[in-house]
């Protein structure tokens, strides 16, 4: 990523001249505002920033960012971003996708960009519904959810976006929510800092087709009981006033324990580099356990584009006249008539 010295930009300079056309009350507004706010802090020049998207409500995002942008076709943003990032490793590339675009039609490309570990930031807006097509269930919709295409309730098992990302070898996996500005910003900053694919699941409310899907996680009244805010090196504590924590029972199963001052040492301690713990956290069953928010996993691995260019650069070649004339004549040759 370039660290172009073009600071002093403000949120306004990342706002494009296009009218934002999401439904009133859509969680996407809040996400857009925080992204626009964080971009100047990240310190990459606007011209070196590219937002790529597929199809869906979230995929309108690039039009609202005053950067370079590519609004592509359904599910393919990660594949387009892959080509762009390989060709132009110095650009800061962001993919904006949703639970339909990224996990259903584009699921294949998503898992492969994660395993390759391109230095691309992926923001997956998960509202557990298809919004742009007006209310069909998605791969993250809860079992039993009544939608236009599941009038008797969803019968497909959903999957967990963060579990999937970890299974696909993602080097950075985080989860945040649309309405918690400070948390969202901090996760975005961490994602931008990470060298490698950053996968950020943003729980996002669709007020029209799946309103309140994350109310238990975001309502002030229940927020303490239903959110587990992760911090590297800190024990897993949540609840009103931090009155409870999570530990393993004798069968290595998670359990919630009330803190009594003496048992806090038994609690699990978050470690962003611990694969097994990251996966364990994504499997905590809601609502018996709180929803972990924050950085689940952050580890350093070489990026794909670095490896591509290392192989090329190691050869110190040049695509010049001499090289091509040698290439063309590299097989057995023979002369007819006068040699040229």
């Amino acid at each position: 990523m370039t660290t172009a010295e073009s600071p002093k930009l403000t949120r306004k300079e990342f706002v494009s001249d296009q009218d934002v056309r999401w439904c009133p009350g859509c969680g996407d507004y809040a996400i857009l505002a925080q992204v626009q706010k964080v971009m100047p802090e990240i310190g990459v020049a606007r011209e070196n920033t590219v937002f790529v998207s597929g199809i869906g409500c979230s995929s309108r995002f690039p039009y609202y960012m005053n950067t370079y942008g590519f609004h592509s076709i359904h599910g393919r943003a990660t594949a387009i971003a892959t080509g762009l990032k390989i060709a132009r490793p110095e650009l800061s590339v962001w993919v904006v996708t949703g639970d339909g675009d990224g996990l259903s039609i584009g699921g294949n490309h998503l898992i492969h960009i994660l395993r390759r570990n391109l230095n691309v930031n992926i923001l997956l807006f998960n509202n557990q519904i298809y919004g742009l097509t007006k209310g069909q269930f998605s791969p993250t919709s809860r079992l039993g959810l009544v939608t236009k295409s599941s009038p008797k309730g969803v019968i497909d098992n959903p999957f967990d976006a963060a579990s999937l990302a970890l299974g696909a070898e993602a080097t950075f996996v985080a989860r945040t929510v649309d309405v918690q500005a400070a948390h969202l910003q901090s996760v975005l900053r961490r994602a931008a800092e990470h060298r490698g694919t950053s996968f950020v699941e943003i729980l996002q409310n669709c007020p029209v087709f799946n309103d309140g899907a994350f109310d238990d996680v975001t309502d002030r009244a229940t927020i303490d009981e239903h959110q587990l805010l992760l911090e590297h090196g800190k024990p897993l504590i949540f609840g009103p006033g931090g009155d409870r924590g999570i530990r393993l029972d004798k069968n290595m199963e998670p359990e919630v324990v009330a803190l009594n001052g003496a048992n806090s040492e038994q609690l699990l301690v978050h470690d962003e580099t611990n694969d097994a713990l990251a996966y364990f956290l994504t499997r905590l069953e809601r609502p018996r356990f709180p929803v972990p928010l924050g950085v689940l996993r952050a580890v350093q691995h070489p990026t794909y584009e670095d490896r591509v260019h290392e192989q090329i650069d190691a050869l110190h070649g040049a695509a010049d006249e001499k090289a091509f004339d040698a290439l063309f004549a590299s097989g057995d040759t023979w002369q007819v008539g006068q040699a040229k």
């Binding site: 592509s72 076709i73 393919r76 594949a79 892959t82 132009r88 294949n108 490309h109």
Partner: peptide, 27 residues
């Protein structure tokens, strides 16, 4: 590779063409 050529063996045909288009967008 000595001529600077990048080859990307994608996960499927669609990713093949999409990555090419992304690369073209990048110049």
């Amino acid at each position: 590779k000595e001529l600077g050529v990048i080859t990307f063996q994608a996960e499927d045909e669609i990713a093949g063409v999409c990555s090419a288009l992304g690369a073209s967008f990048g110049g």
